[in-house]
Amino acid sequence: MGMESYQQGIKGEELAEKYLSQLGYEILEKNFRSQQGEIDLVAKEGGFLVFVEVKNYSYRSLGKPAAVIKKSKKESIIHAARYYLYKNRIKNVNCRFDVITIYRGIDGSRKIELYRNAFFVN
């Protein structure tokens, strides 16, 4: 991973944050990490605690990642989510996993898509 893609990633996450705020998500945490996992964004929306994964892709990527998340990535997010709940002593709250995809075109334009309830534990 070069510096460029890292910066694109940061930029993408900023963009996602802005986008979610517009939709009424209240961002609680960014880049939350546990020992074996990480979550890009933790937010609150309509009574749900939402764990958001941000996926960047561009005209250079092969195909469209959409909401498809690798199993290992899923496990990492779930691990972090469990740790988040434990650390903040959150119980009895409905949670959700959302995925945001950000497409960067050749001219630098971006397209954001949000997938609610994208995956489940198990």
């Binding site: 779930i78 709940l85 709250v93 409905n94 489940f120 534990v121 198990n122």
Partner: peptide, 8 residues
Amino acid sequence: QRGLPGQS
């Protein structure tokens, strides 16, 4: 149960 989404 409320919590992380899933089913068994």
